[in-house]
Nucleic acid binder design. Structure first.
Lengths: 155, 155
DNA sequence: CTAACTGCAAAAACTTTGCACTTTT
DNA sequence: AAAAGTGCAAAGTTTTTGCAGTTAG
């Protein structure tokens, strides 16, 4: 079992290396986005990333955020968490793992998972699909919102 | 193992019963939406549902589609499949099961899954969340798009 | 009859796009 | 210097909202 929290610096360097490796340019905005997405404990959305970077780079544009995010997504270096209102991104653990999402406050936390290694292969065999990436989401109430719910018993 | 294809009529009646049970009115539009969503083999999106119903009810509005969909979603009778561009809905099997989604043509098929019954409980314990519903998505290439990809080897 | 639901259209929210300017390499 | 990337704003999509009119119970 690997250590539960990987060093953000490792992730950061990995992503930078991967980008360079593919011949992409290292612009300050890109570096900053990679930093944000590899160091944020949570799972920021595109607009959250945008707002965060604007602190350092007031001229940062949404287009650049989406551009770079698409790049990393294609490179399978970040996980996109599709939410109906806005997608969030996980840059820390590219390997499949579940996300637990609060339907009340939208908080997202990582879960742990014993993914049966044969399962994907079985799904590929029965479906004929070639599976590239997976996404596991569990929706519910976070501890915080649970206690609020309990407090007001008007359901 | 249960039969692979449940009777659409059962699903339909279940949903109608559930709606009545909660005191909701049975409008023709609602009936039709329930019919569409329980009988469609695939996993229609809100706009596909809208267009389909417009054949029978030319005055059907998007608002009604989204209204009823929200209702059923809250009642945990349909599964929402969050896609970044538009969500699709699965009205046939409210219980957790994986969806396999083609990243090329957006086709969605159901997968089968041996869900470890204890997994959710374990996730609840470690996260403190109360988990209400889950969503498993596998992204890849469907058989159709795979062969197209093979045909043109310009990658 | 009345509260709930529908339908229309406008608004809101998120994402994508085009093009001129700037910057990495 | 040249190709790649940025930034601005506009356009495109999907979803939500308000309110008057309609209808199921």
């Amino acid at each position: 079992m690997k250590s539960p929290m990987n060093d953000p610096n490792d992730r950061f360097n990995e992503l930078i290396a991967a980008l360079k490796d593919r011949g992409y340019r290292m612009t300050p905005q890109r570096l900053e986005l990679v930093r944000v997405i590899t160091t944020s404990e949570g799972h920021p959305s595109a607009s959250q990333i945008y707002e965060t970077i604007r602190n350092q780079f007031p001229t940062m544009s949404q287009a650049t955020v989406y551009n770079t995010l698409s790049l990393l997504k294609e490179m399978n270096q970040i996980l996109e968490i599709d939410l109906h209102d806005d997608s969030h991104y996980d840059g820390n653990r590219p390997e499949p793992h579940p996300h637990i999402i609060c339907i009340q406050c939208n908080r997202i936390v990582d879960g742990n998972f014993d993914l049966d290694g044969n399962m994907i292969q079985r799904l590929e065999e029965t479906s004929g699909f070639h599976i590239i990436r997976s996404q596991f989401a569990f929706y519910g109430l976070c501890p915080n919102c649970r206690s609020k719910e309990k407090a007001s018993v008007n359901d």
